[in-house]
Design a protein around this nucleic acid. Structure first.
Length: 883
DNA sequence: GCTAATCCTG
DNA sequence: CAGGATTAGC
């Protein structure tokens, strides 16, 4: 009494807390996706602007990638790779040609697609481009300054870098190459010769270029424009920017050549190595022009040139063949989708040829390298490009994974990134590799690798997301169980006990306590068939936020627990008890369910009684959840580990029916806390000891779940053996125990509910349960006593309580709805005594005294008999059922 | 003052 | 069945 106020306040506080918590939870749980989003948002926020920025960038890139990414063809990717190879090849004259061809592809296909996409992106794209440019420059040259330079084109060194793609720091690479070719001071001559050869080769290639298609639009105009831009860019770099950094870069390299040639090769010369490169580029550009001037020299070496041409041609042909083969292989793998890409690729090749002719000589290498690098960088950051490669696969994956948009997005990003990284590595390798043939081989290998990797990545992505999906589905579908339980409701129960043979006291124990929980046909609405129960188990275990959320709510619709559900679901992966029990979304998850602590409570009973494992409200992240799951259930059958049972019940209880009870149980707990509820919180917080290892999860739980604090008691560890909460099974067990004892002591309860960690709440709740049992019991006694009196019964001896008696039926219905337990004869005897006591008291007129029942209570409390040992077992329900 | 038990109510 | 209020016992 005195505590009243305080208790009330406490309770109120607890309620308030719950509400608060609930809000949070609701937010999280509302929708799984939402929860994620919120989490992500929180994460981002917590992390700071940097992440946000990254995220935004990513998103942009993504968007861009999505737009163009789909379009991006496998061929393009291949081409890109080829380009990268070319870069490596550069040193060789032939290689340069090839590289040019590849470059053309790059420009036409990859660069355009990628850049356009980025451009479409607008801000995001611009940013990306800039970044890419910087990154590219940095890579090639290693000079951070380049990166810093806002306009890649502007910075002359940057342009140099573009050229220098091969060896930024060691500009020598370029020179070394010439060495291999001409390797004389006559560099110019040799270069000229080589260039002339290149020009020829290009011409040849043009002819080779099968598809006139290619050249058409993008090729010519675009390229030309690029060239122009390049030239301008060399001078002022300004013009190039509009297209894409990648293009710009390439253009720069080219542009530089012409201008430099005319003006002064070394004009730019800021960087030595770079300067050399420029010269070469310039020379290349000039080549056609120079050829005129140097024709004589060239003529002298025509034979050599021709041979070189032939070799180059052969190489080109080989390369083309290889490419075709690779493409074919690729297509074979991906069939129809790839076909379109092939066409594009061809076009791209044609374009390349055209460019070459025109460009004639530019340091395509540099361009290529730039393009590649840019691409890689873009990918690295934004994934836009990344999608190109995996685009098709991703698309498929997406289609499959649509349902899990969020997850998919993450997965895709990850995949893209991975691919990008891989590509980058490959590119590096390629560069390292030297020779055209090697390129071809490398291309093949890479293609294969890429394909395999892509497949792997896709598969991985699918696998993980699928699981998640499955979970979702499972949750939704799983709802069936609930209704069944309702059907069982006591009202329907057939013959309460008619057939029951009178059991001797001994028999009861040993008994064939036929707790036919299973035969839910019986009246007990609460318990589903064993099978259902099992399902529930599994279901419960798997906490899927969605499931719990939607599923539970759906099932429970009317159920009182909505608040709880909202709370728990958010992050946790619980599975909704949705009836579909069987559906464990994640194959991996299934095992955890059993261990799941919520189940713990019921565990002993659950098996037999089909107690429903309480769903997890816990918002905890799966990992946390997982923890508890592992140990608890399995071992004890569910009894143990369950936190504050009631909550669990609500949520997880597979039996929608039970949910109410579960909720009730929660209430009871709370109530039990009641006088001490406030204290309860305190206790819990302090009492965590119960939970023992609460540690991480508990803390989290507590923080988030207000009510859950009760839950919090649930130590994941405790789950191992002891439940902190009372489950519906426990309630059922208590009811059955009531047949033996109407006034159990707290110690007795502790003995018989050994699977429960006793705290004030638990104890109070159990006591409350028995109090309620007694209340109902005495009410029935008084009712039937008066009824008998009204019926004219004069002597209490006339009153007998048999199994056919209405009184017994009423009682049996209340304590043994399923009628799956054989009520001990002793109970009948006690009931008869009680009825007579009431009868006599009423007849005597004692009922006038407000406390007239107390005398009866005193009598009845002495009639308690021992409870069978079976009840001490956490699995007593199962045992009873089996018996 | 705390707790258990009961009564009353929903 | 639970919560709140009340009562009673320690």
């Amino acid at each position: 009494m005195p505590d009243h106020d305080s208790t009330t306040l406490l309770t109120r506080q607890t309620k308030r807390r719950r509400v608060d918590i609930g809000v949070k939870r609701t937010v999280g749980s509302a929708i799984f996706s939402r929860a994620r989003e919120t989490l992500l948002d929180r994460m981002n926020q917590s992390h700071g602007p940097d992440q946000d920025g990254d995220c935004s960038l990513v998103s942009h890139s993504h968007a861009g990638a999505n737009g163009d990414g789909e379009k991006s063809n496998v061929l393009r990717k291949l081409l890109k790779r080829a380009n990268s190879y070319e870069d490596a090849i550069i040193p060789f004259p032939g290689a340069t040609i090839i590289s040019q061809l590849l470059k053309n592809n790059m420009k036409n296909g990859g660069s355009d697609s990628g850049f356009q996409g980025s451009g479409a992106l607008s801000s995001g794209g611009s940013e990306i481009q800039a970044e890419d440019a910087c990154s590219n420059s940095s890579r090639d040259r290693d000079s951070p300054s380049d990166c810093l330079s806002p306009g890649p084109p502007l910075a002359p060194p940057a342009s140099s870098s573009s050229f220098g793609r091969p060896p930024p720091p060691s500009s020598h690479n370029a020179p070394s190459q010439p060495l291999s070719l001409s390797s004389f001071d006559l560099d110019r001559l040799s270069d000229e010769h080589l260039r002339a050869k290149r020009a020829r080769v290009e011409n040849i290639i043009r002819g080779m270029s099968h598809s006139p298609l290619v050249r058409p639009n993008a090729g010519d105009h675009g390229q030309e424009s690029n060239r122009d831009n390049e030239n301008s860019s060399n001078n002022s770099n300004s013009s190039n920017d509009h297209r894409g950094d990648g293009n710009n870069v390439g253009s720069h390299s080219r542009s530089d050549c012409p201008s430099s040639l005319l003006s002064s090769p070394g004009s730019r010369g800021g960087v030595v190595g770079v300067g050399e490169v420029y010269r070469e580029n310039k020379r290349k550009q000039r080549l056609p022009q120079q050829q005129h001037s140097f024709t004589q020299l060239v003529c002298s070496r025509q034979e050599q040139r021709q041979e070189e041409r032939r070799q180059l041609k052969l190489q080109l042909e080989d390369m083309q063949k290889q490419l075709r083969q690779l493409q074919e292989k690729f297509y074979q793998i991906y069939d129809s989708e790839t076909e379109e890409e092939e066409e594009n690729g061809e076009n791209g090749e044609a374009d390349r040829g055209g460019e070459r002719e025109e460009d004639g000589n530019l340091s395509e290498d540099s361009i290529r390298s730039d393009g590649l690098e840019e691409r890689h960088r873009d990918r690295g950051r934004h994934d836009e490009l990344s999608e190109l490669d995996p685009g098709l696969f991703l698309d498929r994956a997406r289609a499959l994974l649509r349902e899990q948009a969020l997850i998919d997005g993450e997965m895709e990003e990850d995949v893209d990134r991975e691919e990008e990284d891989r590509n980058g590595e490959r590119a590096m390798k390629r560069r390292a590799a030297g020779g055209g043939r090697q390129l071809a081989e490398t291309l093949k290998q890479e293609l294969n690798c890429a394909v395999s990797q892509v497949v792997d990545t896709v598969v991985k992505g699918f696998s993980s997301p699928k699981q998640a999906v499955s979970l979702h589905h499972g949750c939704h579908s799983s709802t069936p169980a609930a209704p069944s339980s309702s059907s069982n409701s006591s009202s329907s129960c057939p013959p309460p006990f008619g057939p029951l043979p009178s059991l001797t006291p001994d028999s009861r124990f040993g008994g064939p306590l036929a707790l036919s929980l299973n035969g839910d046909g019986s009246p007990t609405p609460n318990y589903h068939s064993s099978a259902q129960r099992l399902h529930c188990f599994g279901d419960v275990i798997v906490p899927s936020p969605l499931d719990s959320f939607g599923g539970l709510s759906g099932r429970l619709s009317g159920v009182p627990t909505p608040n709880d559900q909202t709370e728990a679901l958010p992050l946790v992966v619980r599975k909704s008890g949705g009836g579909g029990g069987g559906e464990n979304p994640n194959p991996s998850l299934p095992p955890p369910p059993p261990p799941h602590h919520p189940s713990l409570h019921p565990s002993p009973l659950t098996a037999s009684l089909g107690f429903s494992p309480p769903s997890f409200r816990h918002p905890f992240p799966i990992p946390l959840m997982g923890y508890p799951f592992q140990s608890p259930l399995g071992s004890h059958g569910g009894g143990a580990g369950y936190p504050p049972g009631p909550k669990d019940h609500h949520r997880s209880s597979p039996d929608s029916m039970d949910i109410t009870r579960e909720t009730v149980s929660l209430r009871t707990k709370m109530a039990s806390l009641g006088g001490g509820h406030l204290g309860h919180h305190h206790h819990r917080q302090t009492s965590p000891s119960q939970h023992g290892p609460e540690g991480l999860s508990l803390s989290l739980i507590k923080s988030e779940c207000g009510d859950l604090q009760d839950m919090a008691d649930i130590s994941p560890y405790s789950g191992s053996t002891i439940q902190e909460g009372l489950s519906p099974n426990h309630l059922k067990k208590a009811k059955l125990m009531f047949f033996y004892t109407r006034y159990p002591s707290s110690n007795m309860l502790k003995m018989y509910f050994s699977d429960v960690k006793f705290n004030r709440c638990i104890t109070s709740q159990l006591i409350k349960w028995f109090s309620n049992f007694r209340e109902f019991y005495y009410i029935q006694m008084e009712k039937f006593a008066r009824q008998a009196i009204n019926e004219g019964v004069t002597a209490s001896e006339e009153l007998t309580v048999g199994r056919d008696a209405e009184l017994f039926r009423a009682l049996n219905m209340h304590y043994n709805k399923a009628n799956d337990f054989e009520v001990p004869d002793r109970f009948l005897e006690v009931a008869q005594v009680t009825l007579r006591e009431f009868f006599n008291a009423i007849v005597a007129g004692k009922d006038a005294d407000p406390s007239w029942k107390k005398a009866i209570y005193k009598v009845i409390c002495k009639l308690d008999s021992e409870v069978p040992e079976v009840f001490k077992s956490p699995n007593c329900l199962q045992e009873l059922l089996h018996d």
